[in-house]
């Protein structure tokens, strides 16, 4: 029994981190209809923002969390203005963003690889190697902190979206862009800010990832499939759905890893993506796609 609880706890902690990794991707798709394949590569960029100060000066990665969030949000604004804004009125915008973000992912990977090589890195503050013991059950503090901070950030985002004036404009734009415009919402501004928040979240996720997983520039290819499975299961554009999907799949993956084999753990996400697209392509909270 304690073994099951142990696996459940590890799955939930991992789910917290994946929630944050997927939340930005979901927000950007929900508001902008941008399928951001570059999201995980930007998470890795965020991880490097935490890594180097830790490596060079021993700066705690958590101290770098707001810094990485702001830097990546600023990069988000730049990226949006340079790459996406001019195509925003294209009838095939979503399809084009797949190609554009694929290119961005390649560029980010190439740039990070060129600067930092493809050596595996990890930040190792003391808490990343410690654990809390409750009887027979241990909770790795690194994963615990990352999970708690992720949920705190997502909760703050949810409160912002629900109760602030601009947050309501973002929600409205997600649900009906034309209607939002007709009520006085500057949807272009909402788009830029949402994209910046999304990439800022990638930066924050990167900092947490830096002490939970080993990372290197090409790692994003593995993560994009994982994140897409979360976003698709949750329902494209639904942040709540993405968070629930992250917890569900992470727990399943933890059990698969514990009882079937660690190599099959990641396969859980890929298999889930395949099954969801076949059985319920709209996911848990998404709109049913039109067939016509």
């Amino acid at each position: 029994m304690s073994n099951i609880i142990q696996v459940l706890i590890l799955g939930l902690a991992l789910g917290g981190v994946f929630s944050l990794m997927g939340a930005g991707l979901s927000l950007v798709f929900g508001v902008m209809r941008i399928v951001n394949l570059a999201h995980p590569s930007l998470i890795i960029a965020g991880a490097y923002i935490a890594y180097w100060p830790f490596k060079l000066w021993g700066v705690d990665p958590l101290v770098m969390l707001p810094v990485a969030t702001v830097i990546m949000a600023a990069i988000g604004v730049l990226l949006y203005k340079l790459v996406f804004e001019r195509e925003a009125k294209s009838a095939k915008y979503s399809e084009m963003t797949v190609l554009l973000t694929f290119a961005v992912a390649m560029i980010v990977e190439g740039a990070l690889g060129g600067m930092f090589t493809n050596t595996q890195r990890v930040t190792s503050p003391s808490y990343a190697t410690e654990a809390i013991f409750i009887g027979d059950i241990f909770i790795p503090t690194g994963q615990l902190y990352a999970g708690i901070i992720s949920i705190a950030i997502i909760s703050a985002l949810a409160l912002f979206l629900k109760y602030s004036r601009f947050g309501n404009a973002i929600r409205a734009t997600t649900q009906n862009r034309d209607a939002a415009q007709l009520l006085g919402v500057n949807v272009n501004l909402v788009g830029v800010v949402s994209f910046a928040i999304g990439i800022g979240l990638a930066g924050a996720a990167g900092v947490l990832v830096s002490f939970v997983f080993a990372f290197f520039p090409a790692k994003h290819w593995e993560w994009i499939a994982i994140l897409m499975s979360l976003v698709v299961l949750g329902g494209m554009g639904s942040i709540l759905g993405t968070v629930l999907a992250a917890f569900m799949l992470s727990v399943v993956a933890a059990f698969v890893g514990a009882y079937i084999g660690a190599t099959w753990s990641t396969m859980t996400f890929f298999l889930a993506l395949f099954i969801i697209l076949l059985v319920r392509p709209q996911g848990l909270f998404g709109e049913k796609p039109e067939l016509a």
Binding site: N168, R171, A172, Q175, N176, A180, L183, G184, V185
Partner: peptide, 18 residues
Amino acid sequence: ALFPKMTVRENLRMGGFI
């Protein structure tokens, strides 16, 4: 042009966004 996942009151509030 409604916001289907917002409540009636939230929709009315959005009507006064400006």
